[in-house]
Simulated scan of single mutants.
Amino acid sequence: MASKVSFLPKGMGSLSRGLPPSRPGTLFVLGSDGGMSVSPDAGFRLLFGRNQPDVHVCVGVGDTCVSRRHGLITHEYSRWVLRNTGKLPIRFPGSRLVLSGDEAELPTGYTPLFIVAPRQEHLLEVRIAAGAPPRAGGGPELYGEETLDRDARDLSGEEKLVLVCLAQRYLRNDPQPQPLTWAQVAFELAELRPAEQWSAKRAAHIVARVRKRLSARHGVPGLLEEEVPQPVGNALNHHLITDLLVTTTIARADLHLLGPRHAA
Rank of each mutant, 00 (worst) to 15 (best):
G86P: 04
G86K: 01
E121W: 09
L106C: 02
P93H: 04
H75N: 06
H70Y: 01
R79Y: 05
G60H: 08
R45A: 15
S95N: 08
Q120H: 12
V38N: 06
R50V: 06
Y110G: 00
L27E: 08
L27G: 02
V59S: 11
T64R: 15
P53N: 12
R79F: 06
G34V: 10
L72R: 11
L99I: 13
R17S: 06
R83V: 00
R69D: 09
L46F: 01
R91T: 02
H56C: 01
G34P: 13
P20Q: 01
D33Y: 05
E103A: 10
L99T: 03
F28M: 02
G43V: 10
S22V: 06
P93R: 07
V98D: 03
N51A: 14
A104Y: 07
G34T: 08
Y77N: 09
L15M: 00
F44I: 04
W80L: 02
S95Y: 02
F44C: 13
W80K: 06
G60R: 12
T111N: 12
R69V: 08
P112I: 02
L97H: 02
I115K: 04
S37W: 05
C58S: 12
L97W: 00
P107K: 14
P40A: 07
F114C: 00
V98Y: 01
D41K: 08
I73K: 05
Q120C: 07
D33G: 10
S95L: 02
V59N: 14
F48P: 00
G25T: 03
A104W: 01
G109F: 09
R83E: 12
G31P: 02
Y110K: 05
F92V: 01
G34M: 11
G35Y: 04
A42C: 04
F48V: 04
V66G: 10
P107F: 14
Q52Y: 07
S39Q: 07
C65P: 03
R45Q: 14
P107H: 01
G94D: 00
L88Q: 04
M36F: 13
L72H: 15
H122Q: 07
G49A: 11
G25N: 07
V55M: 02
G43S: 09
H70W: 00
R91E: 03
P53Q: 07
T64C: 15
H122F: 06
Y77V: 14
S32N: 04
P24I: 03
V116M: 15
P53M: 03
P93C: 08
T64M: 14
L47Q: 12
R119I: 08
L30Q: 12
G43Q: 10
V29L: 13
S78E: 15
N84L: 09
L72F: 11
L19C: 00
N84Y: 06
L27D: 09
